[in-house]
Design a protein around this nucleic acid. Structure first.
Length: 530
DNA sequence: TCCTCGGCCGAGTCG
DNA sequence: CGACTCGGCCGAGG
């Protein structure tokens, strides 16, 4: 895909907006083990000596816990603007195409037992239950239907039993998608070490990038949405820009030409004719990373890809090739571009306060363009345009996805939102693998569909843990609808249609493929297991 | 149930 | 005094 995500803008928090400085994950890498040991013993000591007063590690009683939470929340509110955010890029898409295919799912007892024998039929049958009889319109109407038709429990149980079957199948698939602890540990160690040192290097040994801020870890790995292997990492390195002028590049509101207003920003040296040329900055950044990476023999630079904002490096960890996208971006702490005004419609889902908090965060600009770099627009080359990114907001929303604060927390009800999204991503991944003409679709399409769906079905009870199958099917139908009408608007920038660059025919094909899977009990999931 | 990682904060240290 | 580092705690996930 060619880049397509777009973030919006946010009102700047004033001065403190930045401080993403403290300990980033990256910081505490190498010492982690030692640290943790120490930590543990220390904690024990503390507990013994009961020196604790408030925050001590003692929290044994629920009461204390509650107190803590409260404190924390209030802290959060106060520090809101500080929260680290990340922007994500589309790079992952391009990357996924290039990455060596790996077999997704390994056979697992769990799955086999769950799926049992004559899968297709059984699944199909069960599915028939979950779905409304006719077309896949509003699945949720099933509920109503049920209410009407079957007032008595037995009737209600029937569909439920089948739904349970579906759920168990899907859950076992989700189980297979989990990342193993050791894999996660191994790869995060490697990545964190590299990034930590890269940032140090940029700060101390470069001029242009000396002001780089704490890394923003974005992308599915850090959203706990990564499936199968921890093999893709997206790290954004923000450069603060105090005052900038941005002018839309093109008409969809996702791309901009950027000019620094006067000041002593180290990037100023790149500015020509009131344009901060993305291509040159990216080039310089790439050089710096390259220079640094020479000291890390295990990491290999991958060739530059046109229109891709990331500098990608790969590293072999055990049998897995990890790819790390490092994206230089501009961090803008002023209000989001006006194209975002009608986006991020999360009021009914997460509330207006949450929305306001998000909009006070900075937004990011990544050196990414669409189409040919030579295309000119008001004297600006496309390759020098920047695309807005709101990955940090996406990450935050996905982490705090409940309409109730306690959703998926201890003591709160669990929902199946993340499960649904993981399954959708996985299905898309498999379909792409089976048919290379689907290359243009990417997981960002899945994520965007999901976010829109959350705004439509806003209650946590709309995504009950036990309704996984129903919710997943509903999400798939949403996706199909978007595909059939060729419209999937950027969640932050509604004027950008993420499907606009993809042929209508292709969209329809994908919709058909998904429908087929849905109606036949997802044979593609099963092929993987056998 | 216990462990690891990521995220956040405050204390401590350095310049 | 501010910038940076370290250590501790917590939640999510496995």
């Amino acid at each position: 895909m060619s880049g397509r995500e777009r973030p919006l803008d946010a009102r700047s928090p004033g001065s403190r907006a930045k401080e993403i400085k403290h300990a980033s994950p990256v910081q505490c890498t190498g010492f982690k083990e030692e640290k943790q040991k120490k930590k543990r013993t220390k904690t024990q000591e503390l507990q013994k000596s009961n020196h604790a007063e408030e925050k001590p590690a003692v929290q044994k009683t629920p009461k204390e816990k509650a107190t803590k939470h409260l404190t924390k929340e209030s802290n959060e509110e106060q520090h809101m603007p500080t929260e680290s955010t990340k922007a994500k890029t589309c790079s992952s898409t391009a990357r996924s195409q290039k990455r060596p295919p790996r077999n997704p799912v390994k056979t697992q007892l769990e799955l086999e037992t769950a799926i049992t024998p004559e899968t297709p039929k059984e699944l199909k049958a069960s599915q028939a239950n979950t779905e409304p009889k006719a077309s896949g319109k509003a699945e949720f109407q099933t509920e109503e239907t049920n209410d009407e038709e079957c007032a008595d429990e037995t009737m209600q149980k029937m569909p439920k039993a089948k739904a349970d079957v579906d759920n168990s199948v899907l859950k076992s698939i989700l189980g297979n998608l989990k990342i193993k602890v050791k894999d996660r540990s191994d790869s995060s160690k490697v990545v964190n070490t590299f990034i930590k040192n890269l940032v140090k290097y940029l700060k101390k040994d470069t001029i242009c990038f000396s002001e780089v801020e704490e890394p923003l870890c974005t992308g599915s790995y850090y959203e706990n949405l990564k499936i199968l292997h921890p093999d893709e990492f997206d790290i954004m390195l923000p450069m603060p820009v105090e005052r900038v002028n941005i002018e839309p590049f093109g008409t969809n509101g996702a791309f901009y030409s950027v000019a620094l207003k006067r000041g002593k920003n180290p990037l100023m040296r790149f500015q020509k004719d009131d344009i901060l040329p993305a291509s040159e900055i990216l080039k310089e950044f790439r050089e710096s990373v390259k220079k640094f990476a020479k000291g890390f023999a295990e990491w290999t630079m991958t060739p530059k890809r046109k229109g891709c904002p990331a500098v990608t490096l790969t590293c072999q960890v055990d049998s897995v090739t990890i790819s790390l996208d490092v994206v230089l971006c501009l961090s803008v702490k002023s209000s989001w571009p006006s194209f975002t005004n009608n986006g991020l419609k999360i009021e009914k889902w997460l509330g207006t306060k949450v929305k306001q908090e998000h909009k006070r965060k900075p937004y990011y600009l990544v050196p990414k363009y669409e189409g040919r770099g030579n295309v000119e627009n008001d004297g600006v080359h496309a390759k020098d345009a920047w695309r807005v990114s709101f990955s940090h907001i996406e990450k935050d929303i996905i982490k705090k996805h409940g309409s109730q604060k306690t959703c998926c927390e201890k003591g709160g009800a669990n929902c199946c939102r993340k499960g649904c999204l993981k399954l959708l991503k996985y299905l898309l991944h498999l379909l792409k693998e089976s048919n290379s003409t689907f290359d243009k679709f990417c997981s960002y399409h899945a994520k965007t569909t999901f976010l829109h769906a959350c705004c439509f079905k806003t209650k946590d009870t709309d995504w009950g843990e036990s309704d996984l199958s129903q919710c997943f099917n509903r999400l798939l139908q949403d996706f199909e609808k978007h595909l059939r009408c060729g419209e999937l608007f950027n969640f932050f920038i509604p004027s950008q249609d993420l499907l606009s660059g993809i042929g209508k025919k292709l969209c329809t094909q994908l919709a058909d493929a998904i429908k087929e899977q849905r109606e036949n009990g997802f044979p593609i999931f099963k092929e993987r297991v056998r």
